[in-house]
Design a protein around this nucleic acid. Structure first.
Lengths: 324, 324
DNA sequence: GCCAAAAATGAAAACATTTGCAATATTGTT
DNA sequence: AACAATATTGCAAATGTTTTCATTTTTGGC
C-alpha cells in the first residue's frame, strides 16, 4: 500500500482493486487518517474554499445572504472562508491578501465600491471574483445583485405618487457604502421628479440599528414640525422609526408614512406591516454561489452577472398625506 | 536570493541583511508574489484558520455572535472557515471532517448536543475544540457560553412571581437544539415551583421566525381562551407574539404579559420594550475567540471555559395578571 | 501451464515552503 | 593585512499529496 495507491483509492477508486481498497479503507478507519487538503492544494488542485469578505455579518440582510450563499456553496462542495472588515475598505484589502495567501478558489466581495488596490490585486492574481449584493453593468468584476438605485427610486416614487411633499429620510452613513448612497440617490431623484426635495434638517443619518433610528425620529418629533413621510434606508431603520412613532402615539400611516428598503424577515409581520422594497437576499446568495463556483471551475470565460430586480412591496405603513 | 532567504525575510526579518530584504521586498512587489499558506501548513505550521460550525447564520443572535467572534479572531491573526448545518447533526459531522481536512487550528461548535461521532472525531484528532453558546461543566469540551436552563428559569420565575398562573409558551422545535430544550426546561421548572404548569394546548411550537410566532399567537387568540402570559423561547418569537397581540388590540402587559429570551438588538427599543433575559452574544463571541486561540497556541493544558451568566431584563411587556 | 494483454501497484518527481547545518561574507581588532 | 568572531546566505532534506511512467501482478485464451 504505497502512498500512490492510497491516493488513487481516494481520488480514482475505480483504478484500484476492490480488495486493496477495502484494506485501505480499514486502515484509514483504524488510524483515523484524514486527507490533508493543504498538501493537495500545493499541487494546484483546488483548495475548495471561497473567500467571502463582508462589511459585517450581523446585519439582518447580510446574514440572510451569507446563509443562502453558504448553503449553496457547500452544496457544491466548497467551504467559506469568512472575513469582515466593518466598512473599512483598507481592512478589506488586507483581508483580500489573506484570502489569496490561503489560495481560495474565488473571492466574493460585497458591493461595487472597493479600493483600487483591492481590485488590482484580484485582477493581477487572476482570482475569480464576484461582486455581491449590488449590480452595475460597468463594475470591474461580474456582479450578482440588485439595483440599489432602482430600489431607492421605486420607494421614492411610491411616496411621491401618494402626494407627499414634506419628506424626511434616515440613511446610514454613505461613505464606503455604495448600497446606501445609491439608494439615497434613487430616493432623491424620484422625489425631485415630483418637484420635492428633502430639507437638510430632515436628512437624518443613523448607523444601522433600531436604537439609533428610533432616537433620531424621537428627536424629530421633539422638534415639532413633522414631515408627512419618513423614508428609511433599510428596514431596520424603519422599525426604529415605527417604534418611535408608536411610542409618541403618532398614527402610521394616518399622520406619517414610513417606508423601508430591503424587506427583511419580519417586516411583513410588523404592525402595521411595513411598506418597503424587496431585495431578495436569499436569491442573491444562491445565485452568487452558483456564479462564483462557475467562475472558478470553468476554463472558458463565462458571463455570470445577474441582476435581481428589486420589487416594491406596498403594505400598511404608507398612505396619502393627511389633508389639512 | 535563494528560497530560503526569501522565506527568512518573511518570517525572521532580523536574520537577513537590510539591503537584501529591500531587494526581496522590491521583487515581491514587482512580481506580485503572495505566500502560499497551504505550503506552510504541510510543515505543521499553523494554518491560521478556525473552523466555525453553526446551525445557521441568519438568526439574529448567531449573527451577532459570529460577528464578534470573527472580529476577535481576526484581531488575533486567524481567519474563519465557516459552515452551517441547518440543525442537522449528521451534516455537522460531515462538516467537521471537512474542517479537519482543511487542517484548521481549532474548531468551535454551537451548543452542547452533538453526535458521538463528531465528538469522538475531534477528540481522536486532538483538535482544539470549543463549545460555544451554551455552558455546562460536564460537557465533553470546554464551553464558553451562557446557561440556557438558567435563562429559562429566570424568566419563568419572573413571570411566576408576578402572579401568572395561566401561561402559554412558544418554543422552537427542541430536537437537536439543546439551547431551546434547556430554556424550556428552565421555564417549566420555575413555573412548577410556583405550582403552575403549561397546558399541552398552550405549548406552541414555532420555528425561529416572526411570522410563525405571529400566526401561532393569532391562532391562540382566535381560540378565545387567552393565557395571562406568553413565554417565548427567544426574542424573535416574542416580537411575533407582540405583533399579533398588537394587531388584535390586546393590551400588553395589561391583558397579556409577553417575554423573550436573548435580548436581541432592537428588543429594548420595541414598543412596548420587551422583558427578556439577556444572553450577551457579543461577549460570548469575543471570549470564545480568545479561548479557542489560547487552546490552539498554548502547549500546556489551559482551562478556557467561561460561563457568561444570563441576566434578566425586566422591561415593559411584563406585569401582573389582570385582576378579574 | 504459457503468452499476451490488461489491470494493479509502486517509484520518483513535483508542488511551495521551512529549517538545520554548512559555507561564505562581513566586521572589528590587532 | 591577517585573524577570529559574527553575520548572512545557500544547500538539502523534509512536509503530504498527486501524477506519470515503469514495473509487477492478474486474467483469459489457448
Amino acid at each position: 500500500m504505497s502512498p500512490s495507491t492510497v491516493s488513487r483509492s481516494f481520488n480514482h477508486p475505480d483504478l484500484v482493486k476492490a480488495t486493496t481498497r477495502k484494506k485501505i479503507d480499514a486502515a484509514v478507519r483504524r488510524l483515523g487518517y484524514i486527507r490533508n487538503r493543504a498538501a493537495q492544494t500545493i499541487h494546484g488542485i483546488r483548495s475548495g474554499t471561497i473567500g467571502l469578505i463582508v462589511p459585517t455579518v450581523d446585519q439582518a440582510i447580510f446574514a440572510e445572504m451569507i446563509q443562502s450563499f453558504s448553503e449553496a456553496v457547500e452544496e457544491l462542495g466548497f467551504t467559506i472562508l469568512l472575513a469582515s472588515h466593518g466598512f473599512n475598505l483598507d481592512r478589506e484589502y488586507a483581508l483580500t491578501r489573506k484570502m489569496l495567501e490561503h489560495r481560495v478558489d474565488g473571492v466574493a466581495l460585497i458591493g461595487i465600491e472597493h479600493t483600487r488596490d483591492t481590485l488590482d490585486l484580484l485582477a493581477q492574481q487572476e482570482m475569480p471574483t464576484l461582486l455581491l449584493w449590488s449590480f452595475s453593468p460597468q463594475a470591474p468584476f461580474p456582479c450578482v445583485g440588485s439595483d440599489n438605485y432602482q430600489a431607492g427610486y421605486l420607494i421614492g416614487r411610491h411616496v411621491a405618487a401618494l402626494g407627499h411633499r414634506q419628506v424626511a429620510a434616515i440613511f446610514p452613513p454613505v461613505e464606503g457604502n455604495d448600497r446606501a448612497s445609491l439608494r439615497f440617490a434613487g430616493v432623491k431623484d424620484a422625489l425631485a421628479e415630483a418637484g420635492c426635495s428633502i430639507p437638510e434638517a430632515w436628512q437624518l443619518v443613523a448607523p444601522y440599528s433600531v436604537a439609533t433610528a428610533k432616537s433620531a425620529v424621537e428627536a424629530l418629533i421633539a422638534e415639532g414640525a413633522l414631515p408627512t413621510a419618513i423614508l428609511c434606508g433599510n428596514d431596520v431603520l424603519a422599525w426604529g422609526a415605527l417604534h418611535a412613532l408608536n411610542r409618541a402615539g403618532i398614527a402610521v400611516p394616518g399622520r406619517v408614512t414610513v417606508t423601508g428598503i430591503g424587506d427583511f424577515k419580519g417586516s411583513k409581520e410588523f404592525e402595521p406591516s411595513l411598506s418597503t422594497v424587496r431585495i431578495p437576499a436569499r436569491t442573491i446568495g444562491a445565485r452568487a454561489a452558483a456564479a462564483i463556483v462557475q467562475l472558478t471551475t470553468s476554463e472558458e470565460a463565462v458571463d455570470v452577472a445577474a441582476l435581481i430586480p428589486p420589487e416594491i412591496m406596498v403594505r400598511a405603513t404608507s398612505g396619502p398625506p393627511r389633508e389639512d
